[in-house]
C-alpha cells in the first residue's frame, strides 16, 4: 500500500469518526484489516424515504492508487433502489466513477451515498427492473423498497405492510427460498401467479 493512501485513509477515518454526522449516528466507518485496504461503512436510511430507520452496510475497498482513483464501494445490505443492483449491491454513482476527484474523502462518499438514497436517478439506472417500477408505479416502488428495508436493514415494521409478508411467507411455505421469493414478487408487482411462474422457470 502506497504511503500516501495509508496517510489519507488514517486521516479520513478520523474525520468520519469525529464528524457531526457520526455523532448523530448517520454515518459510521470501521477498519477491517491493519493495512487500510478494506473498510466497512454504514449509513442510516434518510428520513422521509422508504429506507428510514434502516442501517445499510457498505463494503469499501481502497485501491493501490488511492486517492487518484476512487474507492470501490458496494452495498452489502440488500436494497431496492434504481441505482443499486438488487442482486450484487453494485452502485451507479458518478463520483465513484469518472467524477471522482483526488480531494474527495470517505466522508464525502458516505454522504453522497446517503443523498443517493434520498434522490434516485432513474434515468441513469443500475437495476433496470427497479428503475422501471420507480418510473411507472412510484407507490408500489415505495412499498417494495420499504419492505426490503424492513427485511434486510432492520427498519422498524408497521402493521400496514402485512400483505407483503404474507405473500412471501406463502411462497416460502411452498418450499422456495425466502430471498428468491421476495425478489420474484418485487419484480412482478407482487403478483403471486407471475412470481411463482418466474420461480419455477
Amino acid at each position: 500500500m502506497a504511503n500516501i493512501a495509508v496517510a489519507r485513509i488514517k486521516r479520513e477515518f478520523r474525520e468520519v469518526v469525529k464528524s457531526e454526522e457520526a455523532a448523530k449516528c448517520n454515518i459510521r466507518v470501521e477498519l477491517i484489516d491493519d493495512n487500510f485496504t478494506e473498510l466497512r461503512g454504514e449509513i442510516a436510511g434518510p428520513p422521509e424515504t422508504p429506507y428510514e430507520g434502516g442501517k445499510f452496510l457498505l463494503e469499501i475497498k481502497i485501491p493501490e492508487t488511492y486517492p487518484f482513483n476512487p474507492p470501490k464501494v458496494k452495498f452489502m445490505t440488500k436494497i431496492w433502489h434504481p441505482n443499486i443492483s438488487s442482486v450484487t449491491g453494485a452502485i451507479c454513482l458518478d463520483i465513484l466513477k469518472d467524477q471522482w476527484a483526488a480531494a474527495m474523502t470517505l466522508r464525502t462518499v458516505l454522504l453522497s451515498l446517503q443523498a443517493l438514497l434520498s434522490a434516485a436517478e432513474p434515468d441513469d439506472p443500475q437495476d433496470a427492473v427497479v428503475a422501471k417500477q420507480y418510473k411507472e408505479n412510484r407507490h408500489l416502488w415505495e412499498k417494495t423498497a420499504r419492505h426490503w428495508a424492513q427485511e434486510y436493514a432492520e427498519a422498524p415494521k408497521s402493521k400496514k405492510d402485512d400483505e407483503f409478508y404474507d405473500k412471501v411467507s406463502q411462497l416460502a411455505e411452498m418450499g422456495f427460498d425466502r430471498h428468491k421469493a421476495l425478489t420474484a414478487l418485487s419484480a412482478h408487482e407482487w403478483n403471486m401467479e407471475r412470481a411463482t411462474q418466474d420461480l419455477i422457470s
Binding site: I95, A101, A102, A103, M104, T108
Partner: peptide, 8 residues
C-alpha cells in the same frame, strides 16, 4: 485531465 479538487 481535470483539477484534483472536488467539483472543480
Amino acid at each position: 485531465v481535470e483539477c484534483m479538487w472536488s467539483d472543480c
